[in-house]
Structure formats: structure tokens, C-alpha cells
Amino acid sequence: MPGWDISPAGVGSVVSNMGAVMKVLDDIVQAYSGDLEGAATSAGTLAPGGASGEHKGQTGLVAAALAEFIEGTADELQFIGVRIGKSVNGAVEATVAYQEGDLEMAAELQHRAAGLIQPDMPGGWKVGRQ
């Protein structure tokens, strides 16, 4: 009987490693946020119209641009983890479906070889010749 082109053990290994990958990704996102905040506060306060210098509470053009960038990419960044989770779950569900399909095909072949047929109505297998 032909086998599947999927290794359940391999999928399991990848899935088990995803926890570590997600931790690293979380660390990167936290660093990204902190780095952008640091860049915004270190960029100075050059304001429109040529004013510059230390102005309490005033942010400069670079900080404003970084704030817009963060706002524009926040949704995408937030859903990276969600998309990864859905991908991992999809891989697990597909692997389970392949395994169940493989077992169903094996059972059908065994029943055919033993002269058993599956009735059209629910209720299980019955003896008979095809």
C-alpha cells in the first residue's frame, strides 16, 4: 500500500520547536518596540518651521514619522503570532487527517480482502461478496 508523503513524526518535531521560535519572535517584537521608542526619543526635537532644541513635551519630525510607522504596522505585527499559530494548527490538523485517511484506506483494503463490504446505510460493516 502506498504511503503518504508526510512524516507525522517530522510534523510533531517542527510543532514542538515552534514554542521556542515563538519565544524568540516575542523577544524580537519587544526589542523592536523598545528600539523604535528609543529612536524616537533620541531623534531630537527639530520641529516644523526650523525650530530646534530641547522643548519639553514636543516631539520632532522623526519621532512623528516613527509614531506613524508604528501605528501603520501595528496590526500586521500583532497578527504575526496569530498567523503562525493558525499555520501550526493547520499542519497538525492536516497530519491527523492524513493519518486517519491512511487508517481508513487500510481498513477498507483489509475488509475488501476479507470479503466484507460497507453497506450504504450507517451501522457498520457486513459480510458479503463484492
Rank of each mutant, 00 (worst) to 15 (best):
W4C: 08
G90T: 09
L61R: 09
D5E: 10
V24M: 05
L36H: 02
G34Y: 02
V82Q: 09
V92D: 06
K126I: 02
T59E: 10
A97L: 13
G123E: 12
I117N: 05
G85S: 11
L103S: 11
T59R: 06
R129F: 00
D102W: 14
G10D: 12
G90Y: 15
Q99V: 11
A43R: 06
I28V: 15
T41Y: 10
N17M: 15
G44W: 02
L66I: 01
A47Q: 07
M105V: 09
E76P: 00
L25R: 03
G53I: 03
L61V: 06
V15K: 14
D5K: 05
A67S: 02
G53P: 03
G72W: 01
G12H: 10
L61D: 06
L109F: 15
K126Y: 02
L103Q: 14
V21R: 13
A67L: 01
A43V: 09
E76C: 02
M1P: 12
I6H: 09
A91E: 09
V29N: 13
S7D: 14
F69D: 01
H55F: 13
G57W: 02
V62P: 00
Q118P: 02
A94V: 00
K86Y: 07
A31C: 00
L46A: 13
D5Q: 13
G44E: 04
G49A: 03
G60L: 00
V15L: 10
L109Q: 15
M121V: 15
D27F: 01
S42R: 14
Y98L: 12
I70P: 00
I117Q: 09
I80W: 01
D35C: 08
G60N: 01
A31E: 03
K126M: 04
D75N: 05
R83M: 12
L61F: 04
A40Q: 03
K86T: 05
K126W: 01
L25F: 06
L116S: 01
D102S: 14
E71P: 00
K86F: 06
A113V: 12
F79I: 01
A74W: 00
H111L: 12
D120C: 10
A106H: 15
A43H: 07
Y98C: 13
V15W: 10
G44D: 02
D26Y: 06
M18Y: 13
A51N: 05
E68R: 01
A91V: 09
V92W: 12
A39E: 04
S87Y: 12
L61N: 05
R112W: 05
S16T: 13
E108M: 08
G72A: 04
Y98I: 06
T73A: 02
A43W: 10
V29Y: 09
G90S: 10
N17Y: 12
T41V: 09
V62F: 03
L36F: 04
Q78T: 03
S13W: 03
E71S: 00
S33E: 11
G12L: 13
L46P: 06
L25I: 05
V24Q: 12
V11W: 07
S16L: 13
E104A: 15
A31S: 08
E37S: 02
M1G: 14
A114I: 07
A106W: 13
L116F: 04
W4K: 14
G115T: 08
G115V: 12
R83C: 08
V92K: 07
A39K: 05
G90M: 14
